[in-house]
Design a protein around this nucleic acid. Sequence first.
RNA 1: GGGCGAUUAGCUCAGUUGGUAGAGCAGCGCAUUUACACUGCGAAGGUCGGGGGUUCAAAUCCCUCAUCGCCCACCA
Length: 709
Amino acid sequence: MNEKFLNPYDPQKTEKINYKLWEESGFFNPDKLPERHQKPFTIIMPPPNANGSLHAGHALFVTLEDLMIRYKRMQGFKTLWVPGADHAGFETQVVYEKKLEKEGRSRFKMDPKELYDEIMQFTLDNKSFMENQVRSLGASCDWSRERFTLEPKIIETVYETFKKLSDDNLLYRGEKLVNWCSKHQTSLSELETDGVDKEDKFYTFQYGPFQIGTTRPETKFGDKYVVMHPDDERYKEYSHGQKIDLEWINGPITATIIKDEAIDMKFGTGAMTITPWHDTADFEIAQRHNLDYEQIIDFYGKLLPIAGPEFEGKNISVAREEIVKKLDEKGLLVKTEESFKHNVKVCYKCNRPIEPQIKAQWFIKTEPLTQKALEAVEKGDIKFVTERHERIFRHWMENIHDWNISRQIIWGIPIPAKICLDCGEGMVDLDDSISKCSKCGGKIEKDKDTFDTWFSSGQWPFATLNFPEGKDFKGFYPTDVMETGHDILFFWVARMIMLGIYCTGEVPFKTIYLHGLVRDAKGKKMSKSVGNVVNPLELSDKYGTDALRMSLLVGNTPGTDMNLSEDKIKAYKKFANKLWNISRFVLDNTKDLNEVDLESEDIKKLINSNSELINLEKTITDITKDLDNFQFHIASEKIYHYIWHEFADKIIEESKEKLDNSETQLILLYILQICLKTLHPFMPFITEEIWKSMPIKNKKLLLIEEWPV
RNA sequence: GGGCGAUUAGCUCAGUUGGUAGAGCAGCGCAUUUACACUGCGAAGGUCGGGGGUUCAAAUCCCUCAUCGCCCACCA
C-alpha cells in the first residue's frame, strides 16, 4: 500500500504545498513557459475591491478564470492572467465612512490628506489579505504582473485618456442636473441610483386659476412657471408667455404660462408648475424655453433663503407638512390623495432619496463612443456569453446619456484640471501648468473632485498591459476573455468596451463571459445584514478548495444566478475522495510499472485495440468542445460522471478479475492519467498531488502537461 | 410604462442544433476482511406551470395566459 495515499484524502495537507510548487515553477508567468507555448491567451482579472474579504462571488470568478487559464495553458497557449486590486473609489469610501461612524468620527471633520492616508492604509491592508485568499483558491495568475488601480503608471494612463477626450472634444464641463446624495455629499451616475416604488401623499393646490398636483410641496417656492400642453382644450384661453398674478406660499407672485408637449394631458389636471433646479423633466422644459431657475434646496437637504424666513434652513423632510399646512390655511389646498404610487430615485448605498441638483461637473459625450462599441459587437469582434446579455447591452448602449465622471469624494484619482473661479470654465491640466483662466483670464483653482472609479476601471485592460508602448500591450492585447459578473455589465463592461476601442483602436477583449450572482442554498441574495453570507475560505478549509471549485462549476449556467449549499460542496468533497481512492487502487496494482512511456508504439497499439477507450475518447472530445464553448457547467459534470460512473464503477470493477495482466494495468494507468489531465483545470490541487505518484516517463508538473486531445 | 429571465423528481438545479427525461441532496431496500461507508448494488419518484399551434416526433420551435424574479425608464 502506498503510504502516501492515506484514506481519506486530506486537502489541507496538499493545497499549500502544491500552490507553492506551481508558483515557484514560474509557469504562472507566460514568459517562463516552455517552448511549445507560443500563441497568447490573456485574461485580465477583474480587480477585487480592496475593502473587505473575499465573498462567494470572488470564489466563482477565480474558479472560472483559473479553469480557462489552466485549460489553455495545457493546450499550449502562452497564458497570461493579470491579477489586480481596485481602490474602488466611492465603494471603499462608503465602507470606510461606516467604520468612521462606528468610531464616532466623520469624514467631514477630517483633514482631507489625513483621511486619504487612512483609507490608503486600510485599502493596502485589505489588498494583501485578499491576495492570499486568491492564492488559496488556486489562482494560477502571474503575480509578478499584479496591478493596483492607484499606482502612478495607471494614473498616468487615465490622465492621458482624460486629455485625449478633451482634445477630441468629447469632454465638457457642464452645469447640468446631477444625482446628488445629501448624505455622501457627492454626485452619482445614473447607475449609482436605484429606483424604489414608494407611496406618497399627492397634493393638489390652487395656483391662480389652475390646479396643480405635486408630491413635493417643499420644492414649490421657486415655481413661477405653469406648464400645460399646447393642444389642451381646457386651457386654450391661455397663451404661451402670458403673465398671471396669483397668491402663493409666501404672498403674491407673477407666474408665466408655458406650453410644452412634454405634458401629459391625461395626468391630473394637465397643468403643473416646474422646479428646474431639482427635477430632470422640469429642467428640460426650462432649457427648451430658456427659462430661468433657482436653487431651492441646498446640498445638505435644507431649504434656502428663497423659502422665506419662516422656512429657511429647515430640513425638507419636516418642511413638507408645514408648507402644506400653510397653503391649507390660505385656502389653497384643494385635496390630498393619501397613497400615490410612484418611483423615487435613491442612493444605491444609503437608500436616501436622491436630490437632483444643478452642478458643474465633467461629462463625457458618450454617443461617439457607443457607436464604435456597437459596431464592434455587430461585427463580432466582441462576443457575448450569453447572447441574452448582448441584447441587454445593446439596448442600454442605444439609450445612454452623457456620463458624469466627477465625484466629490476624496478617495480616488484626482481630476487633473483647473476651474475658473470667475466664469466657471474648466481646463484640463495634466502637468499643473495653468495659472489663469484661458477664457476670461480670471483666477483659477485646482479641481477638488476625483474621477468616478469606473472611468479609470474602464481603462483597466489596456492600462494593466502598459498601453501604449509596453511589451505586454503589444504581446497580449486585445485580451481574449473578460469574465465578470452580469451586475456590472453597464458599470464596467460597457465602459471598458467604449474606452478600450476609443483609446487603442481595438476591442479590449474578444469574448465577454458573464456569470450570475451566487445566492444561498434557498436562492436568497447573500447579505451581511441577513447573515447568510458564506465565506469561501472557510468552505475551502472545511471541504477542500477543489470541492468548492467543483460545486461552483457544475450546473452553474452562464449568466444565471446560482445557489450554493454546503451539501453541494460536500458532494464534491466525496468526489475528491473517490478519485483519491481510485488512484490508490490503480497505483497499488501497477506497482511493477515504472517510467511508462506514453509515447511508445506498444502503448499506442494497446490503446487503439482497446474498445473500452472509445467512450473515454468521446468524453474528452465532448469536454474539449464544451470548454471551447464556455459550457463549463456541462464539461464539469461530464468529467465527474466519467470518472465515477464509468471509470470506477465499470472499468475498475471489471478489471479486478484480470489485474495480474500487464495490459490491464497499463490501460488503468492510461485512463487515470487522462482523467487527471482533464480534471486538472477543474480540481487542480488533488490532481497535481496524485500526478506526483504516477509512474510515467518524462513527467512534468501536471500544470503544464499537454491537454489530452 | 417598456424589456428580459424563470416555472422540470420532496428540495436545489442541469438538459446548445426537436428524437423514448438527468445530477446533487433527502428518502427506501440490500450489501461490509482487502481502492473507497466521504462506499457499492438495486428500486422508487416527473401528464417538464396552464391552454393552443407547427411536426412523423416538442421540456426543446411559435402563440397565448398565469405566477415569481430581475433590469431599464425624467410622467408632476
